[in-house]
Design a protein around this nucleic acid. Structure first.
Lengths: 154, 154
DNA sequence: TCTTGACTTCGAGCATGCTCTAAATCCTAG
DNA sequence: CTAGGATTTAGAGCATGCTCGAAGTCAAGA
């Protein structure tokens, strides 16, 4: 007991690394997309290769890819992630730029969130109206063009 | 005073309707996109035409287009808006379907919002870390691959 | 009337982000 | 050793949502 598995470097990652299929499973992106991310310069780590040329993913590779997917999930375009990746691989000296990039993205995301929330209110309102009118049984009048300057129908 | 402008039907909409350029300005979508929306079946109202074939937008047209832009702004795909538009133009009898569509979309939007918020936390964290390290002057160690099972670098 | 400039339709083109195919190679179980 | 599945590359293809171009029509002022 209390034995240290020397063949593993992390939660189940063997020392020789993971196949692309395993990496895909663990990161939640397809193998196709993993290769694509690498091709377009998103991957800042140097993914290892077997003698035969197959990719071998290690902990840092997976970590970085997860960062990418989170950035993507907040809507950061590939091109911007690449810029960030370029800054990161350029190494020390551009930390302010990285920070600027992240802060500017955060501002955009927050703005988008706010906008979506605002527009969601319309949907909430329409749902309320439909529910109310369905319950009241007079759903017929919904969006049947009304005379003129009157209030818009729902 | 207190004169009623009989040539206008709403906040500045003349009785003969607005040109596509004006409609574009007021709805915030380009004239190209207005035509596109019409082409793909998003527009439930029948936009009027002049004798010469030019579109004339009236209040309800603009209202509906604004509804479309709000649905788009929450990420509803064109195809779904079209389905909604079809339900609306089909008239009475499908209110439950419209409600279902809206509720299902709302659920998706809420889920997306939650996910974005979650992923935004990573960005917040990275920003904090960069700020802290920049302030501390040891920014050099950011994302320089660390030995091994240790904590991921930022 | 003539000249602009706005508008029309139809269809092509474009940006984004994957997603898939083909043909070759690798690797592992039997 | 061999069969068969996984992986490789380069490049094509696809879905979405616009966006633009061409060629022709319309309309309003000089």
């Amino acid at each position: 007991m209390l034995e240290v598995k020397t063949t593993e470097s992390a939660p189940g990652i063997p020392a020789e690394g993971l196949s692309i299929a395993e990496a895909a499973r663990r990161t939640g992106v397809s193998a196709h997309t993993l290769r694509y991310y690498e091709r377009v310069g998103l991957v800042v780590t140097t993914v290892g290769r077997t003698a035969g040329g197959r990719r071998r993913y290690h902990r840092l590779d997976l970590e970085w890819i997860k960062v990418c997917t989170k950035l993507r999930a907040t809507g950061m375009p590939i091109r911007t992630i690449r810029r960030y990746a370029d800054l990161v691989s350029a190494g020390r000296g551009n930390e302010q730029e990285r920070l600027d990039l992240l802060e500017s993205h955060r501002a955009e995301v927050r703005a988008r969130l706010a906008e979506v929330r605002r527009n969601l209110e319309l949907i909430d309102h329409k749902i309320d109206v439909y529910r109310g009118r369905l319950a009241a049984g007079d759903a017929d009048r919904l969006w049947a063009p009304t005379p003129d300057p009157g209030p818009a129908p729902e």
